[in-house]
Amino acid sequence: MNASASGTPIISLTDVHKHFGSTVHALRGVSLDIYPREVVVVIGPSGSGKSTMLRCINHLERVDHGTVVVNGIPVDKAKNINRVRAEVGMVFQLFNLFPHLTVLDNLMMAQRVVRRRSAQEAESVAMDLLRKVGIPEKVDAYPSQLSGGQQQRVAIARALAMQPKIMLFDEPTSALDPEMIKEVLDVMLDLAKEGMTMVVVSHEMGFVRAAADRVVFMDTGKIIETTTPQELFTAPKHERTKRFLSQILH
């Protein structure tokens, strides 16, 4: 979508290792640079460390070895990790909306608490975003009253309300019914068109084709190859990538 990698990376992972307990070695030396306005899609079999890498970027997981630099700030040593996180929006597989708050309050809470915006300001930001994701009429509904697709769109809007520079998507469509996937992908495509820096863990090949600048294929905690969508579909370099693609592209 965007011009290829140029300038200084906005996210930079260098030789990142992550262990869970003493047995699971989830990331084994991952290095990846992501540049502003770039859309990077991460694919790979389950257990390959895709989500873990994403969660390391905004420090939901502590990195055991290596460095993660976001927006020029080393995440591990950041004095105020909350300030880093406010610049990095995250969308989860299971939406993780706040069930005790209405849609509007879901969108307003972090604006009020973290950004210290006035109620009017937060509400106008929230309403703009709800219109953008196409469900302004659900403003007073509770999450449990929404469909999965609507919930995920609210979750995207909630992350966008903080006006982040980067958006991370952790399998945003894999908990959705097939007919709801499109409404979420449409929102994501719009975001990509606007030039948002996005890191997306997803197997939606339609999205890869339409929006991805680069595709990263991971397996067993390592990056196997980084490529463009065209190359991925026409000429994957690695045997492992070919095998994986033959499994998911029927």
């Binding site: 300030r83 406010a86 989860f92 993780n96 706040f98 972090a110 973290v114 992350a159 903080m162």
Partner: peptide
């Protein structure tokens, strides 16, 4: 659910 804490933290709280 721990996802609630993660969602809140990811928003910068």
């Amino acid at each position: 659910h721990h996802g609630q804490m993660e969602a809140a933290r990811s928003l910068g709280m």
